[in-house]
Computed example of a mutant assay.
Amino acid sequence: MEKLKFEFLVKSAEDGKTNIMAITTITTSDDRVFKIPAEMQPASLHEQLINTPTYTKIKNTLKRRHQTRKVWINVTEDLAGIYMDDDGNMQFKDYFLEEIPPTNPTAGISEESLSKVLEKLSATKKNCEYPNLKKIAEKFVLEKFSAKNSNANQWMTIFESECDRFDICKDEEKIEVLRLFLEKSCLDWYSSMLIKLSLASEWGKWKENFCGTYANKGWAASRYAISFRYKTGSLLDYALKKERLLLEIRKSIDTGTLIDLIAEGLPHYIADRIDREKVVNTEELYSEIRKLEHLVSRKTIDRKNVSASYSKEKETFGKKKPCKICEKENRGTRYHTEATCWFKNQKSEKEIKHVNNNELEWELNDMDPKNL
């Protein structure tokens, strides 16, 4: 029994308000497609077809406008008499249906154009196989690593998670991307590893060597993070930096301990204004800190005013004055105190010597020669 494929379409009626079921094309078993004219497309004109069980299923399937389905239907003697003549030609109501020529995707395209299309497809495939790692690395949410980073293990964990996020799974690709996130002396380490292991080595060996080289096994970073305190500037900037330092040394630190350590580094007159019972997370702590920024800002302004006033007084009263003794002695303009002036000391010695000589002369004149 021969089969025909009918294409059903839900489209608008002539009034544009209601939907009707239409049959647009008929396809034979040898893939020849015949078009049904628009005036013959309404399913109501195909009485023998709409009485089949297949049409009932189609009607239940297509509910919205522009939906379409193509289904095969067995051609009974009644259907064959409607859609085919004795010679096998496709028809409907004594109207021969127009055959739609098969579409050839390369028809009308020159060999040169087709060659360019194939080259582009080949280049696209090549790019998919060898992605631009530098462009992908620019999207990483990760700081570059230097010897100053306090937690190499934690940094490596974030690096691997970013690689997974951008589907960088091959060992060689991870090793290449790692170089883009190293700086300063860490690049020397990378060059040494490249000589010893090469790019074709296992990523696990690179990771193990990296963590073993840069893992911080001392207590310096912990001491610095815990003892880090507010000095000047923004309170919020201090709090955010201390949180980062604490999380770098221990990512699993609980929220309560984190809040206590941040608050401990605040000035006491600031921390005492924050209700500890109401702060249950760092976001609330930061909100309270922002409300108190004006206190340190005012203190900074007062300190600046005092410093400026002191500088002005120092400039006014602290200027060195030329020595008057040197000016009287015509010794030039010299800046030192009169008490330390060398010429003053010399003058005093001359005056003392002159006075002493005069007294001695007067005493000799008054003495009785008999007593000599």
Rank of each mutant, 00 (worst) to 15 (best):
I23Q: 06
S222L: 08
P37V: 05
Y224T: 10
L62C: 12
Y238M: 09
R273C: 07
K217A: 08
C341H: 01
F140P: 07
A22K: 06
C323Y: 00
K251L: 11
K324I: 07
Q91W: 12
L187C: 07
D167V: 10
N132F: 09
D31N: 05
T257M: 03
R229S: 15
D78R: 06
K324N: 09
A13G: 12
N132C: 11
R298P: 03
N358W: 14
T61S: 10
L246W: 12
H66K: 14
K344Y: 03
E98Y: 07
E77H: 08
M40F: 13
N345D: 06
K148A: 01
E313W: 11
Y335C: 06
W155N: 07
S12V: 07
W362S: 04
H294E: 14
I100V: 15
T56H: 13
Y214I: 00
E288S: 09
D85S: 01
K320W: 02
E293S: 13
A107H: 11
A38W: 05
K35Q: 01
F317E: 03
D302H: 10
I175G: 07
K344D: 07
L240H: 04
S185P: 02
T213R: 15
P53T: 11
L360P: 01
E143Y: 08
D254N: 12
I50G: 05
V71R: 08
L240I: 14
K242N: 00
K207A: 09
I259H: 02
S191M: 08
S115C: 04
Q346D: 12
D78L: 05
S110Q: 04
F343H: 06
K242P: 01
K63W: 12
D368L: 11
K205D: 14
R250M: 11
W189Y: 08
K134R: 08
N358Y: 10
E264Q: 00
D275Y: 04
I249A: 00
W342R: 15
Y238K: 03
K125S: 15
I175F: 02
E173N: 15
K320H: 00
N330P: 00
T68W: 05
E14V: 13
E243I: 14
T68Y: 08
I100K: 01
V355E: 08
T68F: 09
L197P: 06
Y269I: 04
D260T: 06
L178H: 09
R32S: 06
E112D: 12
L45P: 01
K196W: 13
E327S: 13
E349S: 12
R334F: 10
E173F: 15
A215V: 11
T340V: 02
W189T: 00
E338G: 04
I26C: 02
K3P: 05
D86K: 07
E183H: 00
L49H: 02
P131Y: 13
Y130D: 05
A239F: 08
L79Y: 01
F8S: 09
L266P: 01
T316Y: 05
Y95W: 10
R298K: 13
W219S: 11
N305T: 12
K135M: 03
G332C: 03
I352R: 12
P37S: 09
L360F: 07
A225G: 05
A137K: 04
R32M: 11
E119T: 06
L245E: 07
L240G: 04
I274F: 09
T18K: 13
G332L: 03
K93N: 04
E138I: 07
T316M: 01
I352F: 08
T124K: 13
N356T: 11
K319I: 02
P102E: 14
E98W: 02
S252E: 03
Q91A: 03
S29A: 15
F159Q: 14
